[in-house]
Amino acid sequence: MKNRSGEKIKLASIDELLGVVNEESAMEIEISKIHPFKNHPFKVLDDEKMQDLVESVKINGVLTPVLLRMDENEEYEMVSGHRRMHAAQLAGLTTIPAIVRELSDDDAIVAMVDANIQREELLPSEKAFAYKMKLEAMKRQGVRTDLTCVQNEHKLGKKSRELLGEQVGISSVQVTRYIRLTELIPELLDLVDNKKLQFTVAVDISYIDKEVQEWIYEYISDTGFIKPKQIAALRNQLNNGPINQIQMLSIFNNCVMAKKVSRSLTFSEKKLTKYFPDDYTAKDMEQVIESLLEKWMQEQSC
């Protein structure tokens, strides 16, 4: 094809129009030759959504290629597409369309997290470890030389935690809270995922020693609850030094002791009027009663 000046011009390929270089064209890779990304934080569940995906794969195949990289052993490592590959296996496929890209460890982590983090059904534990992995990768990457000047200025002007918060749509403080969940023992983290332990309470527990966390888990298993004021009291006591499990239980029990039973007392008008002159108003009678009770209380304290 020629332009208006008669010069020949090159037609852009479909891959170029889509922003995919030729080297990244999808190819069929044997599933048996692909291994999961190390410490992948996202769970692949055989739930209803997975079954829907399996049915779709049986009918249409895998429409979106997975992203792989070659690891240090020259083997295929999954970067993003774990759910698609699992669905392909369940559908009976032996190969899957894949793009193989050359990625460093940190670039692979960022790509993996970015491909998964916007899913609505993510569990708190998945977000926690994903945010932690990406934040650590961002800190190691620092200011990259392949970014534009504007991007570099943006990266220099803000902390990694703030940038991560902007990318995932939460505050840097909330990023910190999620990452704190990675300090919980697995049993407590499961309670958070199953909505049996409040997020904010779990964050407070994350600052407590792992052994004491195990005691807390036992307490929750026995009682079925844990209250914010119990953890607050426990952390306050731990600031003064270590405690044993019996002392912890004592702290928890003191926080949830039954409140005093409220008592209401009513005197009928007939009962009161026989002690007062007829011209006494209700206010007059109330003042006399309060005065007599005050005197009685003083006598009791002597």
Rank of each mutant, 00 (worst) to 15 (best):
I9Y: 02
K10C: 01
L11D: 03
A12R: 10
S13F: 02
L17I: 13
G19H: 05
N22A: 10
M27I: 15
I29F: 04
E30D: 14
I31W: 04
S32Y: 04
S32Q: 14
I34M: 08
P41T: 09
K43T: 10
V44E: 07
V44C: 01
D46S: 11
D47M: 01
K49Y: 06
Q51R: 12
I59N: 02
G61S: 04
R69A: 00
V79L: 08
A91N: 01
L93Q: 09
V100E: 00
E102Q: 09
S104H: 11
A108W: 01
V110I: 15
V110E: 11
A115Q: 00
I117N: 06
A128K: 05
K139G: 00
T148D: 07
V150N: 07
K158F: 12
G165M: 05
V168Y: 09
I170R: 07
V173W: 02
Q174W: 08
T176K: 12
R180N: 15
K195C: 11
K196G: 15
F199D: 05
T200S: 12
V201N: 14
V203F: 12
I205G: 09
Y207Q: 10
Y207V: 09
E218I: 03
E218R: 04
F225A: 06
F225I: 05
K227M: 14
K229Q: 15
I231G: 07
I231M: 10
L234V: 01
Q245P: 00
S250F: 05
N254D: 13
C255A: 05
R263T: 12
R263V: 15
R263A: 07
L265K: 02
T266S: 11
E269Q: 14
K271N: 07
Y280D: 06
K283R: 07
D284R: 06
E286S: 11
L293T: 14
K295V: 13
W296M: 14
E299C: 06
S301Q: 15
